[in-house]
Design a protein around this nucleic acid. Structure first.
Lengths: 164, 164
DNA sequence: CATCCGCGTTAACCCAGGTTAATGCGCCCT
DNA sequence: AGGGCGCATTAACCTGGGTTAACGCGGATG
């Protein structure tokens, strides 16, 4: 499936029960609060996989939206088919375990960062870990990913003007 | 394996490559910062499973410690054996997928709460979701789990004096 | 070319939570 | 019983980030 920049793959509240593998492009997954504030769950880069686990597994509504930041190409997989496959194909199950282990560790790291680091430290770690992001994504989105406002990020950048 | 309250199952920095299933008791998993500050990753209740995925999978050091808050009984499983089993036993692989899906969703929810909610809202949600914890765990530990100081939690409780 | 709009920056003011320290309480220990 | 220790509370003060608003800018659009 091909998408233009700005197009949504699915929206918060949808009943989408698919999983998408990103081939090329860049996606952002975000939560929209009742008051209309956006908080960014993650950026998705080629090779990564995105979909609302909870929505698919518990047959609920998606708790977040996914939109393309660049023109993107994805492959859509039906969660139920995928899940059924893990129940009777060892290859699939192993691959799924592999993927989920990696996914869990990523989530765990982010949880840890929120728990133990300040916004400023999280900013510095993000620069170290994913410098490419800073070329592709607006500062507003970086801020919303770090859990702060664009104004706060601008201040942090000023404080850290020396490094990048 | 039996443990007294206060005993550690493993410590940050250990090379423990096991996974533990809690039969009875109550555990807490926590990070200790360089400056000696404690931040609580999670409380583990009977039926749940704990272990440092990253340590086991990447053969690294554990990034957190696990200590018993009550006398506890656990079953120890070797991660490598477990992982190998998922590679050639469909039953095991399916169970592992099941478990990891649930684990991922829990982490995802916590990530979301840190990203989108204030400390006060997180406190209220915790009361709703796990009221039992408040009887078993000190307020200090609840605060460290919420990502705030005991002093801040005391203030929040005062503001919310009406509800519990 | 002029207009518009969204982004990043900066300033001023506000507030939640951190820090430090004092107090009082309950619990464990011998 | 007495001493000691860790926990919860409260107060005073500090600080990082939120909010609002003004400004300049660059890119898109007519």
């Amino acid at each position: 499936m091909r998408f233009d920049a700005g197009e949504h793959i699915f929206r918060q509240g949808d009943e989408d029960r698919s999983v998408y593998v990103l081939q090329t492009g860049l996606l952002k997954a975000y939560y929209l609060s009742d008051e209309g504030k956006e908080n960014i769950k993650s950026f998705i880069q080629p090779g990564e996989l995105i979909g609302s686990l909870a929505a698919a597994y518990f047959k609920e509504y998606c708790s977040f939206s996914v939109v393309c930041l660049e023109p993107s190409v994805t492959v859509e997989l039906d969660f139920d088919v995928l899940y059924a496959a893990t129940r009777d194909d060892l290859e699939m199950a192993s691959a799924m375990v592999e993927h989920l282990l990696n996914f869990s560790m990523k989530k765990e790291r982010r949880e840890r960062e929120f728990l133990t680091e300040s916004a400023e430290e999280r900013y510095r770690m993000l620069i170290d870990r994913s410098p490419e992001l800073f070329d592709k994504v607006t500062q507003k989105d970086i801020a919303r990913y770090l859990g702060i406002t664009p104004v706060a990020l601008s201040r942090i950048r000023k404080r850290n003007a020396s490094r990048k």
